[in-house]
Design a protein around this nucleic acid. Structure first.
Lengths: 229, 229
DNA sequence: TAGATTGTTAATCGATTAACAATC
DNA sequence: TAGATTGTTAATCGATTAACAATC
């Protein structure tokens, strides 16, 4: 023992975060009919180095020297690894604009994730459906989550109620939480939280633009010709 | 020379990504009336170590031994650093559900970011407004972006049209792109892209739940008592 | 002054990169 | 066989952590 299991866990975090991106890229490549894919090609298009690509991919499959990787097989392996069965049913709390957008989002299907139901404190929304998914009053959150055996909760409510909702989800048996409210959630050991702060990301982007600007001043600047500066 | 500038650029990426989280946390603390904040308190609530907190904060301010940091001053410094003036106007492309959710999102105001206008290929949406923001036909994307001097573009269109939209934004003078489509965008040197793949994030979360499960089997498991297993 | 907290310098840890070996 | 590509082992780089010094 200690093999299969700990091999899986040995994957470094940064590598793990790149795996879905490889998957997206390779799916597109597969659709374009490219049967083989070399690490050099991936590296070029994804702005990585080919060594890094090979090292990442070595965790989940192996390629053929002189030929590269079989595109479809690689897609399959990545899909298999990333979805690893079970733990793919989620409930969503907060059927406001963001919540509705998430309920309607088709992209989750790419990873075999399903949002089973939504909850909202606005009673007027109860018994309605969004994109075919039922909305329930938030009072039923814990009991229904448990009944549905959802292991994932998505929080799309205002910051003030986020912790409360989080507690209810945990009590309902959720083991992972995707949190769109910009607050730190306190959860018991064994529950994983992933924070999604879009505003913060946008702020960091705006920030890096300024750095770029200073960079330009101190050299570099290739490829970018455009009238005066 | 070489001081102010390179000090700013010397901030490590991971530290930079934590800064907005400190800001969120400290704002909440300030509202609760906590005038002083120690690195130990931040570390405890944000699941970091106090050394790391002090090291991070040292990049932008300094605290007082024996007392800690002045909460409000720290908030101010973080705000000043994170928003660094200019480069805060954005345009958004794709006024579907996600686009509308982003247009209505109040959270951007926390970082003084403004979405000035939206664009959509559906002509029926033109001349309407969402949350008070005008929607224009996508044909006017390049020219209006340039006219508005927006430096940031937000892409919330389907994958197939993302690259096309990206090119138009770049031509309009955008220097940073927040991309919600799960594809790699090719941009000229000097343009920064930040990818936001919510589905991928959710997949990784689902994945880490499984790992947690294996962890449980091999020990740990404190704090989590709940009937049978 | 004593004690608690910040700040810094050195050691550790982990990921990336470089050099090279293996293979079809 | 020759050559192109993968895979691996060692070196580098950068961030975190630990130990300690500085300060109110």
């Amino acid at each position: 023992m200690q093999d299969e299991q700990s091999t899986l866990r040995a994957i470094p975090r940064p590598t793990l975060e790149r795996l879905p991106k490889y998957l997206n890229y390779l799916r597109a490549r597969s659709e374009r009919g490219c049967a083989q894919t070399s690490s050099a090609a991936i590296a070029r298009d994804m702005h990585l180095t080919s060594v890094q690509v090979r090292k990442d991919l070595a965790y989940i499959t192996s390629g053929k020297p002189r030929v590269g990787y079989d595109t479809d097989q690689l897609v399959e392996r990545l899909e298999h690894f990333l979805r690893c069965d079970s733990a793919r049913d989620a409930v969503l709390v907060g059927a406001g604009r963001l919540g509705k957008a998430l309920l309607s989002y088709e992209g989750f299907g790419n990873y075999h994730l399903r949002i089973l139901a939504a909850f909202d404190s606005d009673e007027a929304l109860s018994e309605t459906t969004v994109h075919g998914k039922p909305v329930f009053p938030v009072s039923r959150l814990t009991s229904l989550t448990a009944r549905l055996s959802a292991l994932i909760g998505i929080i799309a409510v205002p910051s003030q109620s986020a912790q409360e909702v989080c507690d209810a989800l945990v009590q309902g048996g959720v083991r992972g939480i995707l949190n769109f409210a910009p607050v730190y959630l306190h959860v018991p050991e064994g529950v994983v939280v992933r924070n999604e702060d879009i505003a913060a990301d946008l702020a960091l982007l705006a920030n890096s633009i300024q750095e770029e600007t200073s960079d330009m001043a101190s050299g570099e600047g290739a490829e970018y010709k455009e009238g005066s500066l």
